[in-house]
C-alpha cells in the first residue's frame, strides 16, 4: 500500500528537472502521435470531399464540401470490389489459422527442455533468415516446379511459417509456461500433443492473439505475391487490386479526357477522391481489427522478445 502512496506524494512537489522532462515528453509524444495520424485523417477527409473542392483548395484535415460520390462510384459495380475483398478475407483467414497452428506446435516442441535437439532444429529454422536464395530462384521454383502461376495456394502457402513469429512464440512459451505444469500433466498420463492442445495453447493466448494479428496483417497487406503469381482477375486480392487500379487511374483519366472524339458519354470520374476511398476500404478492416487486438501487443510480444 505504502508504495502506491509514495509516488503520489512525490508528484505534488515535482522537481524542476522532472517537470521539464514531463513537458518535453508530453509535447514530443503528442506531436509524434499527431504526425502519425494526420495522413490517415487526410485520407479519410479527402475521400469524403467533393473532387471540385480538392482541386480548388487542395487536401485538408477536415472534409470540405462533404460528398460520398467517390464511394458511390467505387461501389457502382459492387461485385468488383467485393470479389477482391472476399479473396483477401479467405486468404487472410485461412493463412492466419494455419500459420498459428503450424507455428505454435513447432514453437511448443522447440521450447520443451526434454527435446534434446531443440537448439539444432531451431537453428535450421533460423538459418533461412540469414541466407536465402533471393527472388529469382524462388520465382522459378514457384512457377516452373510448383505450378503456382494463377494458383490461389501461392497466396497462402509460402507465408505460413514466419521464423521470427515462431521463435517469438517459443520464447513466450519458455518464459510463461512452467516446466512443472507440463511435467505434472505428463505424470497424469498426458502425451506431448495433449499437453500442447490442453495446456500450452490456452496459456499462449495473449501471444497467439498478437502473432495472429501480425500474420493476418502480413497476408492482408501482401500485394507483392499476387503481383508475382496472379494474373486472373477473379483471384486478385484487395491490396493488389488497389495497386492496379491506382496505376491505371491516370491512364483512364487521359482516355476520359480524350473521349469527346468518340461519341462516349462523359465519364467525369472523381479520380483523386476515388483513390483515397479505395485506400480507406483497404485500410478499414485493419483499423477495425487493430482496435480489438491492440491490448495484447505489449503483453504478447514483449514477454517473448525481451527475455530472448
Amino acid at each position: 500500500m505504502t508504495t502506491q502512496i509514495a509516488p503520489r506524494r512525490k508528484r505534488k512537489k515535482m522537481h524542476k528537472d522532472r517537470l521539464l522532462l514531463n513537458i518535453i515528453a508530453y509535447s514530443f509524444v503528442a506531436l509524434f502521435a499527431m504526425f502519425c495520424l494526420a495522413p490517415f485523417l487526410i485520407m479519410i477527409s479527402g475521400s469524403l470531399s467533393a473532387q471540385s473542392a480538392i482541386i480548388v483548395h487542395g487536401y485538408t484535415l477536415w472534409p470540405r464540401d462533404f460528398s460520398t460520390r467517390a464511394y458511390d462510384v467505387l461501389f457502382a459495380a459492387p461485385d468488383v470490389m467485393l470479389g477482391a475483398f472476399s479473396v483477401s478475407v479467405i486468404v487472410t483467414a485461412s493463412g492466419t489459422v494455419l500459420s498459428l497452428l503450424l507455428c505454435s506446435m513447432a514453437a511448443y516442441a522447440l521450447g520443451r527442455k526434454n527435446f534434446g535437439h531443440r537448439n539444432k532444429v531451431a537453428f535450421v529454422f533460423y538459418f533461412t533468415t540469414l541466407f536465402n536464395g533471393g527472388l529469382v530462384p524462388y520465382y522459378i521454383v514457384m512457377v516452373n516446379h510448383y505450378q503456382m502461376k494463377n494458383n490461389p495456394l501461392a497466396l497462402v502457402l509460402p507465408g505460413l511459417v514466419s521464423v521470427w513469429n515462431l521463435l517469438l512464440l517459443r520464447n513466450f512459451m519458455k518464459n510463461n509456461i512452467p516446466d512443472s505444469l507440463i511435467e505434472s500433466a505428463k505424470i497424469d498420463g498426458a502425451g506431448e500433443f495433449t499437453v500442447y492442445v490442453r495446456i500450452a495453447m490456452p496459456l499462449m493466448v495473449p501471444a497467439l492473439m498478437a502473432i495472429g494479428f501480425f500474420t493476418a496483417i502480413t497476408y492482408w497487406n501482401d500485394w507483392f505475391t499476387p503481383m508475382l503469381f496472379i494474373d486472373q482477375e477473379q483471384l486478385v486480392p484487395l491490396q493488389y487490386k488497389l495497386y492496379k487500379m491506382l496505376n491505371t487511374m491516370n491512364a483512364l483519366a487521359q482516355i476520359a479526357a480524350r473521349s469527346k472524339d468518340f461519341n462516349m458519354p462523359k465519364l467525369d470520374l472523381p479520380g483523386e477522391t476515388i483513390k483515397l476511398a479505395m485506400a480507406v476500404v483497404a485500410a478499414a478492416p485493419i483499423m477495425f481489427l487493430y482496435s480489438f487486438i491492440q491490448k495484447y501487443f505489449v503483453k504478447g510480444v514483449t514477454i517473448g522478445a525481451v527475455k530472448g
Binding site: C36, I42, M43, W220, N221, W223, L246, K275, A282, I286
Partner: peptide
C-alpha cells in the same frame, strides 16, 4: 503503432 500496420500501397496513395 498504426502506420506500421498499413500496407505500402495505401501509404503510397496517401
Amino acid at each position: 503503432f498504426l502506420p506500421n500496420f498499413m500496407s505500402w500501397v495505401i501509404i503510397s496513395t496517401i
